[in-house]
Simulated assay, not measured.
Amino acid sequence: MSKLSSVFFLKDRLEAMNPTIELLKSHRSIRKFKDQQIPRELFEELIRAGQSAATSNHVQAYSIIHVVNPENRRKIAELAGGQPYVANSSDFLVFCADMKRAMEAAERAGAEVTRGMTEQLLVATIDTALMAQNVAIASESEGLGLCYIGGIRNNPQDVSEILKLPEHVYPVFGMCLGYPDQNPEVKPRLPLSAILKEDAYTDADDTALVTRFDQTMNQYYQARSSSNKDTTWSEQLKPLFTSKLRPHIKAFLNGRGFGTK
């Protein structure tokens, strides 16, 4: 068997044998949900699956607020930038980085705890993101759809007050969960050669790769079944580095006890 034939054989074998990889590659953000509730038993299993994610030193530095109160969901939908699916999805979760529980446990064990370290912020945020992604994958494996809500950080202090979050806990993002009532196309990703480096960081080909990817994204945006627009990946990035910088975040995190020491 030639080397090229071996590559195609391996690709076909992986696709045939590994539905998990295909599930991961088929992710779409869902923003329209059926009026159908997720059974409580399934919901709790999804959260347990999240708990099985990797966690730094077994700290498990996260808490999830399951926002059930309709008025609170409506308020958070507005605070997150007017996103109606926050209020309309079957379930809405706010994933919080939480160092409070672990710090207090260490203190009860006799430690003189140092608070406000940058590493604590990183550990808690990464733990939370890993946990949430496990919940996302588990949800999609059950035919559910989801949408992350980074707009939580538009007004994190107001969200924290609604959810009664104590010091050393902050809301990282939200997640809408439910049964999909739409079937959007899968959004293209950067080519592997743009993000996979060998031995050291190199960017010699980045301009050409991004230019080609902009063409791919322009075709996608113009051809997709809803919200068509004539734009590119690079154009879509511009607001992230201008109007969406969220300069309030540093002061907010300091106030939450997540300093930069």
Score class of each variant (00 low, 15 high):
residue 11 K to C: 05
residue 16 A to E: 14
residue 16 A to P: 05
residue 17 M to L: 15
residue 21 I to K: 01
residue 22 E to A: 14
residue 30 I to A: 04
residue 31 R to M: 08
residue 33 F to S: 04
residue 34 K to S: 06
residue 37 Q to T: 10
residue 37 Q to G: 00
residue 38 I to V: 01
residue 38 I to L: 00
residue 40 R to K: 11
residue 51 Q to S: 01
residue 55 T to I: 09
residue 64 I to C: 09
residue 65 I to D: 10
residue 67 V to R: 12
residue 69 N to K: 08
residue 71 E to S: 04
residue 73 R to W: 01
residue 75 K to F: 10
residue 83 Q to P: 07
residue 84 P to L: 12
residue 86 V to Q: 08
residue 90 S to C: 08
residue 104 E to K: 09
residue 108 R to Q: 11
residue 110 G to H: 03
residue 113 V to P: 10
residue 113 V to Y: 11
residue 114 T to R: 11
residue 115 R to S: 01
residue 118 T to D: 04
residue 119 E to H: 12
residue 132 A to D: 02
residue 134 N to W: 13
residue 135 V to F: 10
residue 136 A to G: 00
residue 140 E to H: 13
residue 150 G to K: 04
residue 153 R to M: 15
residue 154 N to C: 05
residue 155 N to K: 15
residue 157 Q to M: 11
residue 170 Y to M: 07
residue 179 Y to G: 05
residue 179 Y to N: 02
residue 184 P to G: 08
residue 185 E to P: 12
residue 187 K to M: 12
residue 197 K to W: 02
residue 198 E to V: 05
residue 198 E to T: 10
residue 199 D to H: 14
residue 199 D to I: 10
residue 204 A to L: 12
residue 205 D to S: 11
residue 208 A to Q: 09
residue 210 V to S: 12
residue 211 T to R: 09
residue 217 M to G: 07
residue 218 N to M: 06
residue 222 Q to E: 11
residue 226 S to I: 01
residue 226 S to K: 12
residue 227 S to Y: 09
residue 233 W to Q: 15
residue 233 W to A: 07
residue 238 K to M: 12
residue 246 R to V: 04
residue 251 A to E: 12
residue 251 A to Q: 10
residue 256 R to M: 14
residue 257 G to A: 13
